[in-house]
Simulated assay, not measured.
Amino acid sequence: MKNGYLRKIGWPALGTILGILFLSPLYIVFANSFKTQKGIFTNVMALPFGEFFTLNNYIEAFTELDFIQSFFNSLLITVSSTIFIVIFASMAAWMLVRTKTKLSTVLFFLFAGAMLIPFQSVMLPLINIMGKLGLLNPVGLVFMYLGFGSSLSIMLYHGFIKNIPVELEEAATIDGCNTFQIFWYIVFPLLKPITVTVCILNIMWIWNDFLLPQLVINRPGWHTIPLKMFYFFGQYSKKWNLALAGLVIAMVPIVIFYFIAQKHIVKGVTQGSIK
Rank of each mutant, 00 (worst) to 15 (best):
R219H: 05
P25M: 11
F34M: 06
L75Y: 05
V106E: 07
L215V: 15
P213V: 03
F84A: 14
I249P: 02
L14Y: 15
P213W: 05
C199R: 02
F259H: 12
C177N: 15
F22Q: 05
V97Q: 10
F232S: 02
V252M: 14
S150Y: 05
M204F: 09
A112V: 13
L65A: 08
D175W: 11
I265V: 12
P165Q: 00
K102A: 15
T101W: 11
I40C: 00
L18R: 06
V97S: 07
K228Y: 02
L212S: 07
D209R: 03
G272L: 05
N163E: 12
G131K: 07
L26M: 11
R7M: 14
Y27M: 07
F88Q: 00
W240F: 04
W222Q: 03
I85L: 12
L190W: 10
K192H: 07
L215G: 09
V166E: 13
I161M: 03
V139A: 14
F183R: 11
S104M: 12
R7I: 11
N178I: 01
L190Y: 11
L247P: 01
T36M: 12
F188V: 13
V252R: 09
V29G: 00
F183P: 07
M204G: 04
E60Q: 15
G113L: 05
D66V: 06
A245K: 00
L75T: 09
S150P: 07
P226I: 05
T270V: 13
F53W: 12
L212Y: 07
T78H: 00
L152V: 08
L21H: 02
V166K: 13
I87H: 04
M91W: 09
Q69G: 07
L116W: 10
I9A: 15
I217A: 03
Q37P: 09
R7S: 14
P226W: 04
V79R: 05
L201D: 01
W240K: 04
V269Q: 05
K35A: 02
L126P: 06
I77S: 04
W207I: 01
L152R: 05
L244C: 02
K38G: 09
L6R: 12
V142T: 11
M155F: 15
A171E: 07
D66S: 13
A112W: 09
P189T: 12
S70E: 09
H158E: 08
I200Q: 03
V198T: 01
F259I: 14
F49T: 14
V216P: 00
F180V: 11
Q37M: 15
P213D: 01
S24T: 15
F230E: 13
N241R: 05
S33K: 04
E169C: 14
L124H: 08
F30Q: 06
G268L: 06
L242I: 07
I254D: 07
T63F: 11
K228N: 03
P125N: 09
V255R: 12
Q69S: 11
I154R: 04
N32Y: 06
I85C: 06
S150R: 06
P213C: 04
